[in-house]
Design a protein around this nucleic acid. Sequence first.
DNA 1: GCCGTTTTCGGCCCGACTGTTTTCAGTCG
Length: 575
Amino acid sequence: MAVRNEDIAAVFDEMADLLEIEGANPFRVRAYRTAARNLRGLGREVAELVSGGADLSALPGIGKALAAKIREMVQTGNVRALERLHQEVPASLEALLHIPGLGPKRVRALYEQLGVETLGQLEQAARAGRLRNLAGFGPKTEQNVLELIGAHSDQQRRFRRAGVQAHAEALVAYLKQAEGVTEVVVAGSYRRGKETVGDLDLLVTAAQPGAVMERFGAYEEVAEVVSRGPTRSTVILRSGLQVDLRVVAPENLGAALHYFTGSKAHNIQIRRLGQQRGLKINEYGVFRDERRIAGETEESVFRTLGLPFIPPELRQGSGEIEAAREGRLPELVTLADLRGDLHLHTRDSDGNATIEEMALAAKKHGLEYIAITDHSWRLRIAHGLDAGRLLRQIEEIERLNERIKGIRILKGIEVDILEDGMLDLPDEVLSRLDLVIGAVHSRFRLSEKKQTARILRAMDQRYFSILAHPSGRLLLEREAYQVDMPRIIRHARERGCFLELNAQPKRLDLNDSHCRLAKEEGVPVAINSDGHNENACANLVHGIGQARRGWLEKGDVLNTRPLGGLRPLLAKTMG
DNA sequence: GCCGTTTTCGGCCCGACTGTTTTCAGTCG
């Protein structure tokens, strides 16, 4: 099976961990981490570049040595350097690094001085009171280790964006009532629009930090205060969500907001750029020598570097700074740009509302058109439509279109893509529709080769407009199925059909890097709610966030077009 | 190990908090 960017990134991360435990040059360690991060954000599969003979050292953060390791991994599936490391440092030590409070130095001390190699041995040593006597350790650290070994599996917990939204809004409102507070804003990955977040970063401006910290600690949802200093505090809520709060002076808000919005990769690049210009950039501002020259707004921070404002969703350290410098930042799509929703369900399959109710709800949200795309018969659990019921639905939609003004209802279906790539309704029926959405709902575990061939064949059917939730992932529940997405995207271009960015909070599928690839290949993406009730439109904002992280502009999104512009594009996919 | 508008050598982002110290290293984000 092809080696994916994620596989290579995981190897580089592991090598960084092991090198760090070995006490290697920290900058060398950093180079591995940077390369891993860049690979994850690349959007193209590096294995393809290798087979195309491309010069990998042209990629950011990849030099000759790492390029050779990538080639070795693509061609042999292994990296000898990692195997060598395994002979020097037990691979099991990596797990110890993931316990909060244990870093490379302490893990190394545990290994060299106590012979601890595994989590089990660590727990034994801690219980026996052998940790507290190591240099740099004490009773507190020993106690911490004991507590965290048990909770270790929870530490990696992430939350879906939509689930964090309520916590964020409630906390912001609560903190605004603290004395002397002027601003409360959410920063971090939430502000960047990420589909899942590991913790919530809040930024508060206030005259006296003390009152804010006090109120924060007293929030009724707080289960545990992890740390608390004069300007910074971390708590865990009862839901398990970690919240970091930082209080800054109002004149520092811009610098702090930029700093705490991240991403880490973006910040590092920004500070390096500053350094090259003799500037020091931190959360308090931009400084030339001792003099502060910017920091009140984010714009002012960017301006000192000669850059325009970079939207938070782009701050992933994956080319946005170069784009800003060269004046080719995208003008990102906004919620207001959407004119329609091309994937909706009704009571006829597994939805909760009638066609008319769905249409009126969409009209209320200002949409100009919607497509009704109930499930087809193969999806029994969703009470999918057979040919007869679909034909009756078509007639009903035609009647409704005569009666309801101000919104147009398109006739569609979400057909099942069968294991052999065929669709589960005949062409005679599909030909009566305005669009056909195809989706994989079964046999998720096919090999990459078979799954890709299955989807390509479905796209080649006479009536096929949009590939729904293209990777099949369910955030934090189910991995994407194995599929060659670059190939599918190229095939969509050749075939003239489209990919969906499904805006359900638990899907958000296409992911950001594949959105970017679709844009590069010139394949418009449809941002659809996949709604099952009258609240369907509430999903769209999450899809927009994802699209923005994928660099999509208005023109890259299929359903920003007025109906007159959309119809001919859909018609081309329909035979 | 990467990188270059000071540089092919000598740099490499920056500060808060904790626990261990008694002035600071380690960890974290």
